[in-house]
Amino acid sequence: MSTPPTSHLLKAILLLTCSALLFSMMGVCIRYASQTIDNATVVFFRNVVGLFIFLPLILNKGVGFFRTEKIWMHIWRSVVGLMAMYGFFYAIAHLKLSNAMVFTYSSPIFIPLIAWLFLKEKVTASMIVAASIGLVGVICVAKPDTGLFNLMAVIGLGASFLAAMAFVTVRALTQTEPPERIVFYFCLIGSLISVIPMFWFWRPYSLTELGYLITAGLLANISQLFMSTAYKLAPAGQIGPVNYIAIVFAGLWGYVFWHEVPDFSSLLGLSLIFCAVLLCSPLLQSKLNRAKPS
């Protein structure tokens, strides 16, 4: 793996930090919106705002840019990603904000398993250990007061697993599809699907509610653009752990706005997940492979 120039690495870290900050702010908007708005509507606005962001790109590059031979892969990525989004936003509405962010960033622990199942990528012993540690960490975070295996744990684990499936599909799509096309189809298909359950709960929304919904969509999509640019400048294995600062930001917002303080179980779970993701990182895996005797 080639090492990027120091200036690129620092810029990538800065961009990823900004992405994490914006994503945590999105969580604040979703939490406030979820006090009076149903989950289906929040998910719909997250997708449709992203779709409108891409309209200038369509006009600039032309409709031909979005022609694809991988439409079924785009549909699959959109469906599993959308299901994960429903789970994540539900967690934001019902858990401490920092705990909900843990679910968002714990999906890497499932990626090696899914990549092995669908892409036939090799799974090492360290990856299996990492996934096991990560699972324990997620359950520690999801366990509020009602026992180890509760509804929140099932939703959080399910959302993380589905997000990992979406990430693996994106990895396969990037072999032939540019990132802009992948994100566009996710927003388009996600909007078309999520508008159906949203209509069951449709009602006139106040300007404050619309402000939270639109701002959340803008922050989420700008955060994605910052993240994509960061990963173009430096390998994911080197800068990926920077993403976890979003949990710190979320913890700060949770304390400021709702006086939330993480308990011991949550801190333990976060520590375990962070260790698991580091074990799964491409950078560490490559070092472990080089260390093996030939």
Rank of each mutant, 00 (worst) to 15 (best):
H8I: 12
K11V: 12
K11S: 13
A12H: 07
I13W: 13
S19K: 07
A20Q: 07
S24H: 09
M25R: 11
A33H: 08
A40H: 11
T41D: 04
V42Y: 04
V43C: 09
F44K: 01
F44D: 00
F45L: 04
F45N: 00
R46V: 09
G50Q: 07
F52L: 05
F54M: 08
L57P: 04
N60C: 10
V63C: 15
F65M: 06
F66P: 00
E69C: 12
I71L: 10
W72E: 08
L82F: 06
M85G: 07
S98M: 13
N99I: 11
N99S: 14
A100S: 13
M101D: 03
V102I: 10
F103Y: 04
F103M: 03
F103R: 05
T104W: 14
T104G: 08
S106D: 01
P112T: 03
L113V: 05
F118L: 12
K120M: 11
T124H: 14
M127R: 10
V129R: 06
V129S: 07
A130Y: 01
I139M: 08
K143H: 11
L151G: 02
M152E: 00
M152L: 08
V154D: 02
V154I: 11
I155Q: 00
S160E: 00
F161C: 05
V168C: 09
R171H: 05
A172Y: 14
P178L: 08
E180D: 12
R181Y: 00
I182P: 02
V195L: 07
M198W: 04
F199P: 04
F201T: 15
R203C: 10
P204K: 03
Y205K: 02
T208E: 11
E209F: 03
L210Y: 05
A216S: 09
G217N: 05
I222C: 10
Q224H: 08
T229S: 15
A234C: 05
P241A: 02
I247G: 01
I247R: 00
V248E: 03
G254L: 02
Y255N: 11
Y255F: 12
H259I: 08
P262R: 08
P262A: 02
L268T: 06
L270M: 09
L272V: 04
F274T: 04
F274R: 03
L279V: 03
Q285H: 09
P293F: 14
